[in-house]
């Protein structure tokens, strides 16, 4: 039996051939080395993400999240729900909080849930947590350091935490304005964190990268510029939307602003997978549009 087991909510962007499939690949490699077992919630659905509110409204959004949580309660009994995606975590946790404080909304939610299959009823029995929370709180930095067989020495990382992993819930004990956990994870794998990365919690525009590209790209430019200004070789983030927005629009920003951005943007889990001895492929590094050659080199080296 694995050391830890969780009820896993992977989310739409983690599926094969989707925008954060490389995140998922690296999470699998990381969890394998840590002996953490993720039990996928069967037939999970989308959380509604950050713009679902406009057409979906209030109750339909909560009902979508409650369905996942109710299936989890039924199938993965006694386990905490864990999400790797910031929006999935936020959506599910928001629903849990709202239904806990509003009995009327809870009754309405269950009335709607009865229409779905599986004879579901949401009780609110399980915690909803982010993967980073689980790593830090259930395992702790010392345990996370144990499987490290390769150091990411000599690489300087701008730790871009972004919004939804950080606000409104955040990681316990961390501040909203200057959370430190990502820098600590970088140090733990032997990398050098940018100490004064002033765009650490700046918004990348989120879903508005699609609908308001100019406004969003102005945000992304600030995030990348500051990483360069502080001598970063790479950007690291815990959020799929942050990763995508900051990585894929660099070409467009270069056209718009005459900049020459070409900086890799990786997930914390990719750093950890490489440090734990995973190959570039196992760490999902073939999923980077802007390749991360220094991580690939380390991944190709034999472990010490």
């Amino acid at each position: 039996m694995a050391r830890k087991e969780y009820s896993f909510y992977p989310g739409c962007s983690s599926e094969r051939l989707t925008s954060a499939s490389n995140y998922m690949v690296s999470v699998e490699a990381m969890c394998k080395k840590l002996d953490v077992q993720l039990n996928e919630i069967p037939d999970w659905n989308c959380c509604g993400a950050s713009i679902g509110y406009a057409e979906g409204g209030e109750l339909p959004r909560h009902v979508m999240n409650a369905r996942n949580l109710a299936i989890s309660e039924q199938v993965n009994k006694g386990q905490d729900v864990v999400a790797t995606c910031a929006a999935c975590w936020l959506g599910a946790k928001e629903t849990k909080d709202r239904l806990a404080e509003d009995k009327g909304l809870l009754a309405e939610t269950n009335e709607a849930l009865r229409e779905a299959g599986m004879n579901l009823q949401y009780k609110g029995e399980q915690e909803v947590r982010h993967m980073v929370e689980v790593l830090i709180e259930d395992l702790g930095y010392d345990e996370l350091k144990k499987p490290v067989v390769k150091s990411l020495e000599g690489i300087k990382f701008a730790g871009y935490v972004g919004c939804q992993t950080n606000r409104p819930f955040g990681i316990a004990g961390e501040s909203f304005e200057n959370p430190k956990y990502l820098d600590k994870l970088v140090e733990m794998v032997g990398g050098e964190p940018v100490e004064k990365y002033d765009q650490k919690v700046t918004c990348c525009g989120g879903a508005l990268a699609f609908s308001e590209p100019e406004k969003s790209q102005a945000q992304i430019k600030k995030i990348i510029e500051s990483a360069y200004d502080h001598g970063a070789d790479m950007i690291v983030t815990p959020c799929p939307v942050c990763q995508m927005n900051v990585e894929v629009y660099q070409g467009q920003i270069n056209k718009r602003y005459g900049t020459k951005f070409n900086i890799p943007v990786a997930y914390y889990s990719q750093l950890m997978a490489v440090a734990y001895g995973a190959s570039a492929k196992e760490a999902g590094l073939n999923g980077q549009i802007i390749r991360a050659p220094r991580l690939e080199e380390i991944a190709a080296k034999a472990a010490r």
Partner: peptide
């Protein structure tokens, strides 16, 4: 990089219980 499915129009599966989800959302609305 394998982060977009060119055949997604056809091959995207989604949830098994689509019918249940639709009924559930209709009720919620």
């Amino acid at each position: 990089t394998g982060r977009l499915n060119p055949f997604g129009f056809v091959t995207h599966k989604g949830c098994k219980d689509k019918k249940g989800i639709h009924k559930m959302l209709k009720k919620a609305r």
